[in-house]
Design a protein around this nucleic acid. Structure first.
Lengths: 202, 202, 202, 202
DNA sequence: TATGAATGAGGCTTCATTCAT
DNA sequence: CATGAATGAAGCCTCATTCAT
């Protein structure tokens, strides 16, 4: 019944199935059996493509890290105003989470026996890069007189991340990834308006 | 040779151990065996105090819900200025999370058979009450001319929750609950300043 | 709450509760916890009256054996016609089963670790006595020309036991002990009529 | 080092082992561990073939029901005299019990959560069909003047079942299934002779 | 590239039983 | 005569993983 697929396609199928299931039941409850079921495979077949479950999670982490890094790199290569760049970084990240709604929980997934340390480290360092980009753009915005100078640029980044976290939390409760986008833009503008020089507010 | 303890003390011990372990390994990985080990009991001894593992989680949820509700109730009975109340509600909640750092993950804990639905519902409805209190105070602040009138009060609440979430996320990564308090006050003031009428800023 | 009772009363309570529960859930599923619950006692309290669960079953067996033996003895001391005696033995036994409907299953209860061997042995030897009494009376009936002489008296006993077993089986399925009596008399008469000399039939 | 067997063979092995052990220790005491031991398997291996212990019992019940039904169907398709049919139905059933001596106790097996209700229902309804066939043949025998007309056909069936029950009881006590056959024929003839018209008796 | 049978570790839960009070 | 806390053995079931085919 199962269409035999090439190894690389199967690997992608497995990662994709893992992400889907992780969102549905929570990353720690994903079993190799669930993955196999969804792909109409037998459970041991998974082990033809990944040597262990940890290996799957490592690949998932690599995949998600890459996506986060892509976002940062892409935006860095553009030459807009710093506040526009901030906007773009955040909205792109929200889209990434919408498309991979398991990301937040995977990021926090705890290791059995320390094996997931790599997973967290990988994603968290990409998130660190995103934060660094936000800080850099905030600093530029301050320098150009767009943002108030009396706020620490790290705190600006933290508040911006706060929007993301707040949206993510509500998404996890409502189970509706689309709301990230529909509410994100408005809240982001609102937050940014708090950083604007008084004269620029409106 | 464990010291024999009274039932009510043991129940509390179990709940407390559950919260500790939940923070360390993540709520979904807590086993009755871990709880027993930490209390120097055999694993079946747990069942003299709780009829099932679900029963333990239900008690944990009740405990945490109560704490959240207490915070809301306590603050509602005071008669400060609305912006002061907002500050107090948030800081008290951060202290609660510092003392029970497993709370955020428990709130999102998912369960196989949906038996934890009660757990989530209970805590989430308490969080809903906290949000409602923030919205009410924000509305009062707008009415009294303390906050800008051009922001939706629900968005204000969302941004304030954003601070909490952002701090919680960093706490979960750094594993240091104390940072919630040390950073919370500053970020909260910063966030609130964005809501203040222009003339009141600074 | 629990009225403190004298030891001998409690022993009887425990045996009685054991019999009730054995009928309801089957003898092998009776637990000391169930017995304690029914008597509003704590589980270990049972061990003040019986040194082990096996000890309870031994007492139950002694009690039931005694009842069966009483029936045999009582009927042997009477001086009726042998066919009347057979009738009386069977109907009395059916009443005994009606009053102790767990008896049949207890008789067949298998031992964990051979400890119930005593239980079975005790009851089964009483049943053996009942059978012996039936055989003796059947022989007398044949001698007196009441029963056909062409039937082995052991087979007569087996067929009579067949009525009992058949009724017991239906009782176990319908869960209605009263039906033993309401159907027993008619079936017994029918069965006996098959043993009667042709001329005596009707 | 166990010989690896195909799934369908293993399923049958498990059912067969279950029946054997059920006769030896009683159906309620059968554990998945015992089944596995007998097959030189690890206990969880059972769960590759049956999703739960209840599932095993359901399969056992289906198997036994089928056998009982087969007996009824086979006999119904034959065209012998009604009293011959009765004889055949009973003797075939006794052979079935000889080959599956756990049947009687399984039929009465009770379950904690009522999940075995299906087990009992299934077998008991097959037994019901057997009884119905006996009643029908008894009625035909009465109509053809073979059996006495003054006996209720239902009572005839009950007495015939009595033979079976009586034999089963002795078999359970003696633990010797062969005695079902060696004694069954004689007792059955004896019982039937009681139903015969006086003139036909011999 | 996959299947099919099986394992070993570990988790939840029940229950008879002990012992101090 | 009884309670209250606790234990050890055992049972059901899940899951990652192995290995022969």
């Amino acid at each position: 019944m199962t269409s035999r697929k090439s190894a690389s396609v199967r690997r992608d199928d497995i990662l994709s199935a893992t992400l889907d299931i992780a969102f549905k039941v929570g990353p720690t409850r994903v079993t190799t059996g669930m993955i196999a079921d969804r792909l109409n495979l037998t459970q041991p077949a998974i082990y033809k493509h990944f040597s262990s479950k940890d290996d799957i999670w490592a690949a998932v982490a690599t995949y998600l890290s890459q996506k986060i890094n892509d976002n940062v790199t892409r935006n860095q290569s553009e030459t807009g105003a710093p506040d526009t760049q901030v906007r773009s970084l955040v909205l792109d990240h929200l889209e990434l989470v919408r498309d991979n709604p398991a990301l937040p929980e995977i990021m926090l997934m705890r290791d059995a026996k320390g094996s997931h340390a790599i997973v967290q480290t990988s994603i968290q360092s990409s998130i660190g890069a995103l934060r660094a980009a936000l800080v850099a753009n905030a600093a530029a915005a301050v320098k150009q007189g767009l943002f108030r100078a009396d706020i620490d640029v790290n705190d600006i980044a933290t508040l911006i991340f706060g929007i993301i976290q707040s949206l993510v939390l509500r998404m996890l409760v409502t189970r509706d990834p689309e709301m990230l986008i529909s509410n994100g833009e408005r809240l982001l503008d609102l937050q940014l308006s708090g950083f604007m020089k008084a004269g620029d507010m409106q």
